[in-house]
Design a protein around this nucleic acid. Structure first.
Lengths: 190, 190
DNA sequence: GTCTAAGATGAAGGACGGTTCCGCTTCTTG
DNA sequence: CAAGAAGCGGAACCGTCCTTCATCTTAGAC
């Protein structure tokens, strides 16, 4: 584990970095992954160059936001694991993750784009996966989940969720709830 | 219903049209919706201008191929309706449609992009929907499908399917089968 | 065989959007 | 309060594609 020593940012730079992140978050949430850097810069009240000073690439900007989101999701799933039956905890965790994601077009797309392997195996995602696996194993031990269920199943379901949610955002629909209801019923033990 | 009288194409034009459709089908299947017109023209052994003579727009070309595909899907579902229990017929139809679609990147994307309303309410799609509705109603009458199931549910499931299949094509996975297994189990009556 | 309208061609046009870069501004340190 | 390093701005650059169009070719009618 290598520790990278970064000298602290100048005060204005730190401020701008936050403004960029906030603006990017808003723009991506509204417009999805193809929000434009120029627009993000404008919202942040900053030049494009400044955006690129903090994030070398559009992709890096997305990755930063995505990683922050995955941390939050991991917190949720780890948190829901503390109480109750594993199956209920799994469902509750998934529902809350979905709820937190559905409002953000870009995050829906990111989750939708993660069917099996994560491109950037970031910490939040690893925690999320580990917590999910624990709940699945627990539920299997109790026979409340289909006995062949795996983390990949949940990932696949969430991949579908992300896309359905993203596609429906365009039409103003909220039917991703219906999608999740059905998919989770399919995951439950018979 | 207006009948558009089109004078027959010149022999070479008809031939080129077929070549373009075949090349487009191949290119889209491999590369997905962002296959390039230039590439399609090259595969067809034809100039770009010729592609545009037959299809005013890339979108029109995609629409033509998609419509042909939906006709085939409608045939399948209507065909599977003739024999057996409605629920089994529905599943068989869906599986066969999925099988026919999964191999084609662009068609996966098209299906994935159709969560609720169809942009171009084409004939094939209407037939497909009608046939699906009949099977759902039949299954509901027998109590073999969840009693609140609708055509929209199937559309949503297939939307998710298209995306999962498209996303996995990139990674060489075939896990869309797993997705469908779970989703259809979720649709079945308990 | 001629003629003409339909068709073919592919280089150029144009829109779009990420990224670069250099002159200018501002923070921070001593 | 310098001085210099760090940061900023945004016009310009560049690559990517879809689409157009002026020019050339050819099928098919007479």
């Amino acid at each position: 584990m290598s520790t990278i020593v970064t000298k602290p940012l100048r005060a204005d730079a730190r401020r701008n970095r936050e403004k960029v992140l906030a603006a990017a978050s808003a723009a991506f949430a509204e417009t999805g992954l193809d929000a434009q850097i120029d627009d993000i810069a404008r919202r942040a009240g900053v030049g494009v160059g400044t955006v690129y000073r903090h994030f070398p690439t559009k992709e890096a900007l997305v990755a930063a936001l995505a990683e922050a989101h995955f941390e939050r999701l991991a917190d949720i799933v780890e948190g829901s694991a503390v109480a109750g039956e594993p199956w209920d905890a799994l469902c509750a965790g998934i529902w809350r993750c979905a709820e937190m994601t559905a409002g953000d077009a870009a995050l829906c797309e990111v989750i939708g784009g993660h069917p099996n392997a994560m491109q950037t195996a970031a910490l939040g995602e690893l925690r999320l996966e580990a917590a999910t696996r624990r709940l699945i194993d627990g539920a299997r031990a109790q026979g409340t989940i289909r006995e062949d269920a795996t983390v990949d199943d949940v990932r696949t379901i969430m991949c579908g969720f992300g896309h359905v949610a993203a596609a429906q955002r365009a039409g103003g629909l909220q039917d991703w709830r219906r999608y999740l209801t059905i998919a989770l019923d399919g995951l439950r033990a018979r």
